[in-house]
Design a protein around this nucleic acid. Structure first.
Length: 436
DNA sequence: TCTGGGGTCCTAGGACCC
DNA sequence: TCTGGGGTCCTAGGACCC
């Protein structure tokens, strides 16, 4: 396991329109066409192909706002298929891993590469290296990506941004040695597009006359520290070429896990909410076991639909400290049920429910329980763990929810809509692409 | 009719302790 | 008039990210 290191030279590999590109890989007839991917419940647009962007379809917009343009321009519409995207992501990352001693996977479609081995090469050769990595990913996976190469992560992000905006760069932007090249790039980057500067901070900065990344790099460091906290101060240093964000290739153990969904239709009864709570709890428990942790805290939250302003609103959450750290589905189901009883109020139309596990510790060695009231004996505990392992194995082999809590219900009328999901091309035998 | 899901880090403030 | 000082831990909420 490598400790995080301060990068001397780092590349950001950022997949282009990732979800839309995934959908196109096995449908070459869709290449170049306007295509959008909808989030769960087929609600919002969460990805757009280049052609869809150029039609002016906005990111994040609810589907019903763009119906007209979809019909008129024949836009292809897909429901999100996260199992498929996750598998394609794994393939892209495996290719990138061949090009670096340390791959820091930042999200499903982005990773930072430690390029210190090629840092001493002249810029032209560094560029050739990035160009080849990019071409190999495209050839082996079908996914196009953009590379930004620079001394810090934040500058690499800015370089990749530049590359996406300027097709003449051929998908790779290497931030040159000279300070003037860097300054030119930063002057052209609005401050709100700097990585780590969101809408709130951008508004504050603009009010103070700081409108570009260059302005932010030059601003008074004490002022930045005071108004943007340490995260903002780091952004500023990174823009100046001083690495503050380490490259971390250790496979992460999440600090919290969340499974939440909006319902396919409004839900009012405690019975239906209990079904959703049970199903989500089973899913989050499975993920907790998969990363080999046990949780000491379960939070359940519940909200009405904030867009239906004319209806009475209620949102609440309850956190249950678990008497002993666990990843046992049955123990977590009890905690979730008691949390739900605590926050449920009749008379509301609920829209979304979520279950969060947190405050993890590694699952071995197990911390013994100080006061054993009602706890399982060690032998019973071992049996329960074996049961969970069996359950996970069956679900992994025969499909998710093959075995699930009965309390999660059977008909599940509250389930989300997903009308246009593409096949699981790479993750289910019966949905493999065929050639004729 | 119809508005996503899953994360991270930081800070302020309260509870509690000596 | 005057109302310790300093520390830890925990949680909620804000801001940001993809």
């Amino acid at each position: 396991m490598n400790a995080p290191t301060a990068p001397g030279l780092v590349a950001l590999a950022d997949c282009d329109n990732f979800y839309a590109s995934c959908e196109t890989v096995f449908r070459p007839d869709w290449r170049g066409k306007p295509l959008i991917v909808l989030g769960n419940n087929d609600g919002n647009i969460i990805a757009r192909s280049a052609a869809a962007k150029s039609l002016g379809i906005p990111m994040g917009a609810p589907l019903h706002q763009v119906r007209a343009i979809i019909r008129e321009r024949g836009v292809i519409v897909c429901s999100a298929n996260f199992a498929f995207y996750g598998d394609m992501s794994r393939r892209v990352m495996e290719v990138l891993e061949r090009y670096t001693p340390q791959l820091d996977i930042y999200s499903i479609d982005e990773a930072f590469l430690d390029l210190s081995p090629v840092a001493t090469l002249p810029p032209i050769q560094r560029r050739a290296f990035a160009v080849e990595a990019r071409a190999t990913v495209a050839r082996w996976t079908g996914i196009p990506l953009t590379m930004g190469v620079a001394p810090t992560k934040t500058l690499a992000k800015a370089a990749a941004e530049r590359s996406k905006r300027d097709p003449a760069l051929g998908g790779v932007c290497v931030l040159g040695e000279t300070a003037s090249a860097r300054d030119d790039l930063l002057r052209a980057l609005p401050v709100g597009e700097v990585w780590g500067i969101g809408p709130r901070r951008a508004a504050l900065l603009t009010r103070h006359g700081i409108t570009t990344a260059y302005d932010l790099a030059q601003a008074d460091t004490r002022w930045v520290r005071r108004h943007l906290s340490v995260t903002g101060a780091r952004v500023q240093l990174e823009l100046r070429g001083i690495a503050c964000l380490p490259l971390d290739a250790t496979p992460e153990r999440r600090k919290q896990l969340c499974v939440s969904r909006s319902f396919g239709r409004p839900v009012t009864t405690l019975d239906e909410l209990s079904e959703a709570a049970a199903l989500f709890t089973a899913h989050v428990a499975e993920r907790c076991r998969a990363q080999r942790t046990i949780a000491t805290r379960l939070t359940l939250f519940l909200t009405t639909n904030p867009f239906r302003e004319w209806e009475p609103q209620h949102s609440a959450s309850a956190t249950i400290p678990l008497p002993s750290a666990t990843a046992d589905t049955l123990a977590l189901l009890r905690a979730a049920a008691s949390a739900l009883r605590r926050i449920y109020r009749p008379g509301y139309s609920y829209h979304k429910l979520g279950v969060i596990l947190g405050s993890f510790t590694p699952d071995t060695p197990r911390q013994g329980e100080l006061f054993g009231d009602g706890a399982l004996t060690p032998a019973a505990e071992e049996q329960r763990e074996a049961l969970m392992r069996t359950l996970d194995a069956i679900n992994a082999r025969f499909g998710r929810d093959m075995i699930r809590p009965l309390s999660a219900g059977v008909a599940q009328p509250w389930r989300m809509r997903q009308a246009r999901r593409s096949p699981h091309y790479t993750t289910r035998w019966d949905e493999l692409p065929e050639t004729r």
